[in-house]
Design a protein around this nucleic acid. Structure first.
Length: 604
DNA sequence: GACCGCAAAT
């Protein structure tokens, strides 16, 4: 029989057991020990096997001890405390045991202890091997420990492990995670033989820093250099790059690649694909992926709900949310942000309030500042600016810049100078260095014809050394992403683009369009205002797409800042004249322009 | 006698 006290106290395992038990195999050999350990599915079973091995004499073979440590340290159900107590009983630990301990600590995100284990190893005089460094570098990557990482790189060099491809890949990753991309690239370029993991690591390093265009460039180099067998993880980085760049065609190719090379995806990849389609503007495709998905989890629901919300389908998002509840999944705070933003984007005030209360009372979720942000925005949107202000005052936390900016923007739409000034004052106190906030306030003054305040605000902005963020528009044509900024003349086809722009304007005039020059708050004459307005980046991107895409195909644009109301009106008319669906993603939502109407119902 | 590796997301 196995005693309970032994089960719970590993330190007793040196006490020999005298009583023989019929269910214990006393002829346990090394290989059998491994196969026995492999059958363990939890800590309880492991402890039983542990006892069984002890009874036949623990130090019969150090091999048994090694395997006990590695099973306990590396299994899903394992415990590092327990592994440690076994490890400490080993008289002459080898590099194998040390490596196992380092990996185990790293797996538990206890990178500090992993590094200490390595230091112990050196002090005891155990030589690290080529298995030691990948494990250790991973620990440094998790901690973003640049100093340690560099020191270890030096040791790797001295000990001659620098040619090991696993070590090289780990170095690329470590430097990437520490933000030292240049070092990652150096290691990568010096490699004689690159594996899929090397490419994955270097692409991942660029993805970590948001260098999306480089991710895609590297991905295409990868196949050119003969590395074809990309794996899920590589493609996830690529998909993520497509998502950020709004590169739908490339995302579709990646999807195809996944379909051709893998049999069945896991939920994470499916959700990632769904997110890519939705955030690249193809809501339909994302929706059908969602419906075909088996084993939907919180993340998948979260992606679809906030996706529907950003595309302006508030009601549909709420229906999916109800479905989720029916399936027995418990909502969390993230999903509720999606739900409340669905109400906000759809202008559903009553429903928004209802869900806000339900979140607190029924699902016992404490509202975070994001939830309050949604409600403030929701109230502001429908003109309840004073109510929104009251709510801000009652919030249990200090309002942040997002909250005040939201109120400020509502005050602009509903032309409320008094509250706008209060919102701006609070916003400026937070010192977020956002030039756009000053522009917003000066817009409010401009609408009220208070020109003196307009110029005062602008002077303040300049004195603070702030400027407006340069607005840009991305558009993908033939799997290549083109970027335009206002008045851009750097594109090699700029003559054709400006020619197209003139044609478009000429046709727009027939539809009764006249540029809304109030959007240009510069001290320049009317003619120059018109000039500046006519070459906003979004208009350039539309002109470029009209030249290069076939009739009737949709145009998808990704913007870095909110579009001005002139661009909004302009795009609505273009969608009628050229019979195109134009989908514009700005920082917050999607605008679907079709037949002269926008899905945002003219509120954004 | 032989046990361990790198890259990895929504």
């Amino acid at each position: 029989m196995v005693g309970a006290s032994v089960l719970n106290q590993p330190q007793q395992f040196l006490i020999p057991h005298e009583k023989k038990s019929p269910d214990i195999d006393f002829n346990l050999k090394g290989k059998e020990c491994i196969s026995l350990l492999k059958t363990c599915k939890n800590m309880k079973e492991f402890k039983q096997v542990h006892c069984q091995i002890l009874k036949m004499g623990f130090f019969w073979s150090s091999f048994c001890a090694s395997n006990l440590v590695s099973t306990c340290a590396l299994s899903e159900w394992g415990s590092m405390d327990y592994a440690c107590s076994i490890f400490e009983q080993i008289d002459d630990p080898t590099s194998f045991e040390f490596n196992t301990m380092i990996r185990g600590y790293t797996k538990d995100f206890n990178s500090k202890e992993a590094i200490f284990t390595y230091i112990d190893m050196l002090e005891i005089g155990v030589e690290p091997d080529n298995f030691t460094y990948p494990a250790l570098l991973k620990a440094c990557a998790l901690l973003s420990a640049v100093k340690e990482g560099k020191q270890i790189h030096g040791q790797i060099f001295k000990l001659g492990f620098v040619e090991d491809v696993f070590v090289q890949n780990s170095l690329i990753n470590m430097y990437g995670k520490c933000g030292l991309l240049r070092h990652s690239c150096e290691v990568f370029e010096q490699m004689d033989f690159k594996t899929v993991a090397s490419w994955s690591a270097i692409i991942g390093a660029h993805a970590n820093l948001g260098m999306w265009a480089d991710c895609i460039r590297l991905f295409s180099n990868m196949s050119q250099e003969g590395c074809w067998r990309a794996e899920e993880s590589t493609l996830v980085s690529v998909l993520s790059a497509c998502t950020h760049l709004g590169a739908l065609d490339l995302g579709k190719c990646t999807h195809g690649y996944l379909l051709r090379n893998l049999s069945g995806f896991n939920v994470a990849v499916e959700t990632c694909l769904m997110d890519m389609y939705i955030r690249c503007g193809s809501l339909d495709k994302g929706m059908s992926l969602f419906q075909e998905m088996v084993g939907k989890n919180h993340k998948s629901y979260s992606v679809i709900i906030s996706g529907l919300a950003t595309h302006g389908y508030g009601e549909k998002a709420l229906t999916i949310f109800e479905q989720m509840l029916e399936e027995g999944l418990k909502p969390d705070d993230v999903i509720y942000v999606g739900v409340l933003s669905a109400c906000r984007n759809g202008g559903l005030v009553e429903k928004g309030m209802k869900y806000f209360n339900r979140m607190r009372l029924e699902h016992r979720i404490e509202p975070t500042i994001q939830h309050y942000g949604c409600i403030v925005d929701l109230m502001g949107r429908v003109g309840m600016v004073y109510e929104a202000f009251e709510l801000i005052k009652k919030m249990p936390m200090d309002p942040n810049d997002v909250i005040w900016r939201s109120l400020l923007s509502s005050c602009k739409v509903h032309q409320n100078v008094e509250l706008g000034e209060i919102a701006a004052e609070n916003l400026f106190k937070l010192n977020t260095q956002n030039g756009g906030d000053y522009i917003m306030l000066s817009n409010i003054y401009a609408q009220a014809q208070r020109w003196h305040d307009v110029s005062l605000t602008r002077v303040k902005m300049v004195n603070k050394g702030l400027g407006q963020v340069v607005g840009s528009s991305l558009v993908e044509v033939k799997r290549k992403v083109h970027k335009f900024v206002s008045n851009d003349k750097s594109h090699h086809e700029f003559h054709e683009i400006y020619e197209m722009l003139h044609q478009m304007e000429w046709q727009l005039k027939f539809e009764g369009y006249s540029p809304d020059t109030s959007q240009v708050l510069l001290d320049v004459d009317e003619e120059e205002k018109r000039e500046r307005l006519s070459a906003h980046s979004q208009k350039l991107a539309i002109a470029f797409s009209l030249i290069h895409t076939c009739e009737g195909s949709p145009i998808r644009i990704v913007r870095n800042v909110r579009m001005c109301s002139d661009c909004h009106t302009y795009t609505k008319l273009i969608s009628v004249i050229y019979q195109r669906e134009i989908i514009v993603r700005d920082r917050n939502i999607f605008h679907h322009f079709r037949d002269g109407i926008c899905s945002c119902k003219d509120y954004w």
